[in-house]
Amino acid sequence: MSTTANARLMDGSGIARRLVEETAARAADLTRRTGKQPCLATVLVGEDPASVTYVRMKRARCEKAGIRSHHVELPAATTTEELVATLRGLSDDPDVHGILLQHPVGRHIDERAAFEAIAPGKDVDGVTTSSFAAMSFGLPGFVSCTPGGIMRLLDAYGVDPAGKRAVVVGRSAILGKPAGMLLLARNATVTYCHSYTPAADLSAAVREADIVVAAVGRARFIKGEDIKPGAVVVDAGYNEGNVGDVDFEAAAERAGLITPVPGGVGPMTIATLLSQTVDAAERQLGAAPA
């Protein structure tokens, strides 16, 4: 594994590649046993260039994993009611096993209402309140894909959160909050910080953290000099210029493990989405492997 300064890079691309290969084998086996190919429906509202690119990438990964991609494009002027109706229709379609609503969807749309129109059993992106409750209470369900990918990455590098201090910087409903819940479920002591946390308090919290998850959406928001020597640093941010939420070069001088941007958390997010799509298909088809 490559080394940057003192830190070892966490190769999300490599771990994700292996997960996608495992997922493809499961999808092929499911198709052979049932005659049904796992299907992920992607819903895109408008023509935001970044969103178009993300959806195209996810559909391409579906093809590689043996998952059928059913794409729905809606105009930017789509109303909340129209989007909700589309998502309910996909939820009722027995040939669709997972649903991904690409966000953001436009300020005129009630995004939460749209997410809640996705049936929990098809919420393979982990965006509904039902999925968040399952993550929080340790119940069966689907995890939010980026936090789920982070946990898989920690596992791949032998990082056990139990008994460790974890700081999550960010509190979004599908990244920061569930990341903290998943770490808490693994017996970490979790502190949330965010953009309103006073700078001195943020620095103090990060300096004590064994695991730092940066998910605030601000370039180089986490200062390298605040990283505890030997800490695990997971940067889930992606900002203009391929820059994460962590001051990477400085942080790598102190961290034990650190994710690059890009090539760290991003690939794990998509791989987790594909894996959960096959999970959903197995459950809906009553064909989970013995």
Rank of each mutant, 00 (worst) to 15 (best):
S2F: 04
T3M: 05
N6V: 04
M10W: 01
V20K: 08
R26D: 03
D29I: 00
L30V: 00
T31H: 11
R33C: 03
C39Y: 06
E47D: 15
Y54M: 03
K58Y: 03
R59V: 12
K64L: 15
V72H: 13
P75E: 09
A77G: 09
V84C: 06
G89L: 10
D93V: 02
D95P: 00
V96K: 03
H103Q: 12
P104T: 07
V105E: 03
A117T: 05
V127R: 11
T128V: 09
S130C: 11
A134H: 02
F137I: 01
P140A: 10
T146A: 08
P147W: 05
G148N: 06
G149N: 11
L153E: 13
L154A: 11
G158A: 04
V167E: 11
S172D: 07
S172V: 05
S172F: 05
L175T: 14
K177Q: 13
G180R: 11
L182T: 03
L182W: 09
R186T: 12
N187M: 08
A188F: 07
Y196R: 15
Y196V: 08
Y196W: 08
A199T: 13
A199N: 03
A200C: 01
S203M: 08
R207P: 00
E208T: 05
D210Y: 05
I211M: 07
G217T: 00
R218S: 01
A219W: 00
F221Y: 15
I222E: 01
I222C: 00
G224K: 02
I227W: 01
A231E: 06
V232M: 04
V234E: 02
Y238V: 12
Y238M: 14
V243E: 03
D245R: 04
D245W: 02
E249N: 13
R254H: 15
T259R: 02
V261A: 12
G266Y: 07
M268Y: 07
I270G: 06
L273Q: 11
T277L: 09
T277W: 06
A280G: 01
E282F: 08
Q284V: 04
